[in-house]
Amino acid sequence: MVKIDEMDKRVCEMRQNLQKLISEKTNLLDPEVIIASQKLDVVLNEYHAILRKILE
């Protein structure tokens, strides 16, 4: 369960960072926003894969 807790914390931090970037940038297509969003997507995919393994 430690891995889930770590991933959950990481997801929350990355979401907060993405929200901050969005509020600072005037364009959602700003490269920084896109990169942060893509990184969050990767971590969320990993998080869901771990959850699926636990629930099987």
Rank of each mutant, 00 (worst) to 15 (best):
K25T: 02
K3S: 12
L44Y: 04
Q16K: 13
L51P: 00
E13W: 04
R15Y: 04
M1A: 14
I54Q: 11
V2K: 12
Y47F: 15
K39I: 07
V42L: 13
C12E: 15
K20A: 10
L21S: 04
E13N: 15
Q38H: 13
I34D: 05
R52V: 02
L28A: 02
M14H: 06
I35A: 13
D8N: 08
P31R: 09
N17M: 12
L29K: 09
I50E: 13
S23A: 05
P31V: 10
S23G: 03
K20M: 06
L21H: 03
Q19S: 13
D8P: 00
E46I: 05
I34W: 12
T26K: 07
N27F: 09
K39A: 11
V43E: 15
V33W: 01
Q16S: 13
Q19E: 14
V11Q: 08
L51K: 05
R10G: 00
L29N: 08
K9T: 14
N17W: 05
N45M: 06
N27M: 05
L29T: 14
I4K: 08
I54A: 08
K25R: 14
K25W: 03
E32A: 13
L51T: 01
L40T: 09
V43G: 14
L21V: 02
K53Y: 01
D30M: 12
L28K: 02
K20N: 12
I54T: 09
V2A: 06
I34S: 07
V42F: 11
D30N: 15
E46K: 07
I22Y: 00
H48P: 01
D41H: 11
L51W: 03
E56C: 03
L44W: 06
H48M: 10
D41W: 10
I22A: 01
K39L: 14
V11N: 06
V2T: 08
D8I: 05
I35G: 00
K25H: 00
K53G: 02
L21Y: 04
R10N: 10
S37R: 15
Q16N: 14
N27K: 07
E56A: 09
R52K: 09
K25L: 00
E32G: 01
K9S: 11
M7V: 01
K3V: 10
N45A: 14
E32T: 03
V43Y: 08
V11A: 05
E13L: 12
Q38S: 13
S23N: 12
L29P: 02
R15Q: 12
V2R: 08
L29M: 14
V43W: 06
E6I: 06
E32K: 12
L40W: 07
I50D: 01
K39Q: 14
E13Y: 05
N17F: 15
N27Q: 03
K39D: 15
K9F: 07
N45G: 04
M1L: 09
M1T: 13
H48Q: 15
N27S: 08
V11D: 12
K20Q: 07
V43K: 10
I34Q: 14
K25P: 01
N45I: 06
I34F: 04
M7I: 13
L51V: 00
I22K: 01
L18D: 00
M1W: 07
K3E: 15
L18R: 01
H48G: 01
K20P: 00
S23C: 03
Q16F: 10
A36L: 11
L18E: 02
M1N: 10
L21I: 07
N27W: 03
D5V: 11
L18N: 02
L51Q: 05
E24D: 08
E46R: 09
R52M: 00
S23W: 05
C12A: 15
V33N: 00
L21F: 08
